[in-house]
Nucleic acid binder design. Structure first.
Lengths: 196, 196
DNA sequence: CGACTTTTTCCTGTTACGGTAAATAACGGG
DNA sequence: CCCGTTATTTACCGTAACAGGAAAAAGTCG
């Protein structure tokens, strides 16, 4: 059980509905933890059965009623106990790395395309982290404990994305050096002389 | 199906038994992909059923007979096709990050302990990567395509571990600054005056 | 003899992931 | 009035992954 604890962690900030949680898992905590709404609703039921959270129905007009979930004291305790256990370092499990491991048995062109897409992806994410950092922590310092955690997270995220983006560039360069082609050459779609 | 493809990727290097694969998933590729022997044997059966690999029994004396698995042409094709599809960037899913996200609702002492353990862990891994790099690529350059992939992987791994280790240090420093304690103070095991 | 290595297999769970779908409730367009 | 959309929750399906416990078969080492 880890997704459940991630949800508990989210609910420490403020009570939320499953719908809000799903959106949260699409932005802030979702930067390093993916979960779709089905997973979240399922986990919420389990947490409620366990007594770790408590739902309060809020009647709305104009929208379906919503269930706002709040941490119970038991939930807080459970979270603290979970957080007191040593964490297990997760393994990366990135398809891209597996492909690099079998580099001489796969086609390089699609790999190159993939690397370029990933480069863009990680650059985007890096820019996004930097944007949030500048907005939430213009001084680069945190005041409260909650802020400190999020500042550290954002910094780690930014650095990670930066590093992976650099890696993609490097890999692309190395592939180009190996195949003797220029890095991208998307222009000049005319005739191309053979390379051997 | 990703573990299956990781196994196929391993088998491109040379035919292997499940036992050898389990050990491989404990060192080289295991640096970024964890799988125990049960998972591997189960996946091998599936791959064999699919015709992607082929087992050849080798009679041994002194040891139980072993099943050496080789990639079939279909397996090679499947791997190439899989590698030609765009990769999906995996999310980190590290407990430690969730805990930082809920920093103001958890106990800091165990978190500190955890961070120190992680710091050591990532430093060890970094040293290990560097060791292998120096041994396999003393020049820092690769010759063949297979070598290039592994060189890139090792470099990425080394940088990643370095970065996470730095992060742990930084987080520890920040926590210390916040609680007003010194970073570790493991020496001087004599009497320790109460802290409040 | 017992402990250990090598090698494979089977078992039982839980957790996670993915897709498809629907029910409820209102709003707005054509 | 039907249709689509947004907000909100729930259901069911299957597969993949992870965790752990067990054992069998053949030999070596102490």
């Amino acid at each position: 059980m880890a997704l459940g604890d991630a949800i508990l962690a989210c609910l420490t900030e403020r009570p939320m509905t499953g719908y809000e949680l799903a959106k949260t898992f699409d932005s802030s905590i979702g930067f390093f933890w993916k979960a779709d709404h089905q997973q979240i609703y399922r986990e919420l039921s389990k947490l409620r059965d366990r007594g770790h959270i408590q739902g309060r129905e809020v009647v709305q007009s104009g929208k379906p009623n919503k269930l706002v979930y709040t941490l119970t004291p038991e939930g807080r305790t459970a979270l603290r106990h979970w957080a007191a256990r040593p964490s297990t370092p997760a393994s990366t499990k990135d398809d891209l790395l597996v492909r690099l491991h079998a580099l001489d048995s796969i086609d390089i062109e699609p790999l190159r395309t993939d690397l370029m897409a990933r480069l863009e992806h990680h650059r985007d994410r890096h820019a996004n982290y930097e944007r949030i950092l500048k907005k939430r922590f213009p001084e680069g310092t945190a005041e409260g404990r909650l802020d400190l955690g999020n500042l550290l997270l954002l910094r780690l995220g930014a650095r990670h994305e930066q590093m992976v983006a650099d890696f993609c560039e490097e890999a692309l360069d190395a592939l180009s050096a190996m195949t003797g082609k220029a890095t991208v050459v998307p222009l000049d779609e005319g005739k191309r002389e053979g390379k051997g």
